[in-house]
Amino acid sequence: MILRAEKIAKWYYRKSGESNRFFAVSETDVQLESGSLTVLMGRSGSGKTTFLHMLGGLLIPDAGKVWVDDKDLYAMNDAELSRYRNRHIGIVSQGHTAVQSLSVLENVMLPQMMYADTDRINESADEWLARFGMEHLQEAFPSELSGGELRRMSIARALAGKPEILLADEPTGDLDDENTKLVMNALREAADEGTAVLVVTHESDALDYADQRWQMNAGVLTK
């Protein structure tokens, strides 16, 4: 599977009018391929997250198109795009997001449970939690977890569905060195198994795992 961004851009208008158009992401062409891990580096506020959200079908670009193979992501309606994202794209978001009313295990199973229910979902969620050293926290609720645990839970949630594209926004932001390695190895492994992985980070340690390295400065992406 190939994720291709074709001249995508995102801009905002400042209060004074169109003359002050501010580009969060300038016109960019990129391609993410199966089996590769790409690391996008950049300072805070450089547009990395906006770029990732556009690739993940969460934010409509003001210009350009995002293709997954021959499918134009933003030509789909809400139901189609939601289902497509659920099936093919794994997203690790920046903050500590979890459904508070569900247990850790249920949170990990949640994306897959949205459109299907099989026992394999449970197995896969168990495996990833065990791998991240959280098997004893399966029945705990998100409010009982630390920041690092929440982060690992959200990575397990993204990986458990074996997505073809995985977009991770600062996946190691709250983690110590040991857990950073654990997570980066897991992402590397996912890429080796055929997933197209994009890691957005400002930590240079991630570069050791990358097949491609991109840099973003003030909305301009350089390869």
């Binding site: 969460l58 939601s82 289902r83 099936r87 997203i91 978001s93 903050g95 997001t97 994306p111 949205m114």
Partner: peptide
Amino acid sequence: RKEIGLRKALGASDQS
């Protein structure tokens, strides 16, 4: 709000 945003990101449709 956050939880709804997350569920949408994970693939929940407006209908759900």
